[in-house]
Design a protein around this nucleic acid. Sequence first.
DNA 1: TAAGATTTGTGCGTATGTATT
DNA 2: TAATACATACGCACAAATCTT
Lengths: 87, 87
Amino acid sequence: MSPTIDYDAPTPPYQQIAAEVIRDIKAGVLAVDRPIPSESALIQRWGVARDTARRAVRHLRELGYVYTVPQRGTYVAERGEDERQAD
Amino acid sequence: MSPTIDYDAPTPPYQQIAAEVIRDIKAGVLAVDRPIPSESALIQRWGVARDTARRAVRHLRELGYVYTVPQRGTYVAERGEDERQAD
DNA sequence: TAAGATTTGTGCGTATGTATT
DNA sequence: TAATACATACGCACAAATCTT
């Protein structure tokens, strides 16, 4: 069973969704420059509204984990967490 | 007459709204650490939806012109345009 | 060339929760 | 007790660009 949204958790749904994507990125399930699940995929996977899915993606973008190409998709960025320190 | 939204313009409504706020900041109409117009004020001023007003404020925040205090409001930041260069 | 599917961008309406005044 | 304001979330619609068939 893959996790579902916990509406009683202190962290909002969009952050729970983003957290799983981050786990997948760190685990290598989602490779650099490969697309992350689309908005509609996230909507189906988690059963949330588009607003929530978009918020999750925006959150990932703000954290530096992904970048979005308009009308194309959102892809895994080279680094995450706002370009942390060097290697 | 204050400007209204031009839906035929190449720039989206939220950027047109943000542009006016930036003009007011640069003109000194809105002073540092003073609140910018609230969401509902922008909604009434421009006749747009909440999402659009929010988008405008988020845009201003990303540009560094304002900062938001959760549950309080959004205020004019010291500098704009992502802390440009020194004076 | 054309049609259709996919994906993101933008906009509107509404509701709930929380914090401040 | 309101009124105000923001954050989050749900719904819906259409447009634009891209990709596939």
